[in-house]
């Protein structure tokens, strides 16, 4: 009996020793050198693997950081300035400070302002619809409302509003990784600076049709009337293809453009409520202003 025990012990020990030797040589032979800094950088990153930096994952980004001469082109939008500062410290390089950004939805064509022109019946996927046709409303630029951006968001920072049929960004959770921007086949979502005190002003429309046509398909479309351009004292607004765009670098958040917009397509976010707010609504229904805008457009009509 004891013989069996002893033999077993010896056999197992010999196998163990042989295996250990093989493993030792194998590890020597197949060793791949990796900069230990990569591990350190990776630890400093949020490891969400969202791809927001442009690299497939956090480790690839860490590698790129270690390799790069300076960090000006590398930025982890999820971690923000703090994480980049830590990374820079580890590597002894300088990080660039960037403004915090947040995703904004540049379409406010909810069910009640944008009438349907047909019923879509097919796979519930924005890209499939966008490749098939212009969508189930008169606006060929607007949100399709099937929520591919919500599915793409890895931080639960978006949801579909049942009432409007539009996606909503939860600002506190949004990391500006840009997954939704890439997912949207209509290029509706934009990353904009979060702004001072998280206040920002943007044109919530990307309709490039002439004013009259845009207005017909959606009540809150930008009609390219350029009233906002005139109201802006800081040259922050530009009109291209009948569509206004506010440059967030130049905008000083004075809110003048919001007041003059006849369709209410310029949105202000996180501003304190103002006393004259009801008046704005009145304005949006002021037919004269819309008419002025229309006339202006028709005279501008291209050949």
């Amino acid at each position: 009996m004891s013989e069996i025990v002893i033999y077993t012990i010896i056999t197992v020990s010999v196998i163990g020793i042989i295996a250990a030797i093989i493993l030792f040589f194998a590890s020597q032979k197949f060793k791949v050198y990796e900069d230990p800094k990569i591990d350190l950088v990776e630890e400093a990153l949020p490891t969400a693997n969202c791809g927001g930096c442009g690299y497939p994952g956090c480790r690839n980004f860490a590698e790129a950081c270690v390799k790069a001469d300076d960090l000006s082109n590398l930025y982890c939008p999820v971690g923000g300035n703090e994480v980049m500062k830590n990374v820079a410290e580890i590597l002894g390089k300088n990080a660039v400070d960037k403004e915090k950004q947040v995703a904004v939805i540049r379409c406010s064509g909810s069910y009640n302002v944008r009438s349907r022109t047909n019923n879509y019946d097919g796979a519930e996927n924005c890209t499939i619809v966008a490749n098939l046709y212009s969508g189930d409303t008169g606006c060929q630029f607007g949100c399709l409302g099937l929520g591919e951006c919500v599915d793409a968001c890895g931080f639960d920072a978006m949801y579909m509003d049942e009432e409007t049929g539009l996606p909503v960004v939860i600002q506190d959770k949004c990391t500006a990784c840009g997954d939704c921007v890439r997912a949207c086949p209509k290029d509706i979502i934009e990353l904009r600076n979060a702004g001072k005190k998280d206040r920002r002003i943007f044109v919530s429309c990307i309709n490039e049709e002439k004013g009259g046509i845009a207005k017909k398909s959606c009540e809150v479309a930008c009609i390219g009337c350029s009233l906002c351009v005139k109201a802006c004292n800081y040259d922050a607004i530009e009109i291209n293809n009948f569509l206004a765009y506010i440059d967030y670098e130049k905008c000083v958040l004075c809110r003048k453009c919001v007041d003059v917009c006849p369709t209410g397509s310029i949105h202000e976010i996180n501003f304190p409520a103002r006393k004259i707010k009801p008046q704005k609504k009145e304005k949006s229904e002021n037919p004269d202003l819309v008419k002025i805008a229309k006339d202006k457009n028709s005279s501008e009509t291209k050949e």
Partner: peptide
């Protein structure tokens, strides 16, 4: 099932 819809999507991508 919308088989062709998704196959078209994959062809596109």
């Amino acid at each position: 099932r919308p088989l062709l819809d998704y196959i078209r999507l994959s062809k596109f991508e």
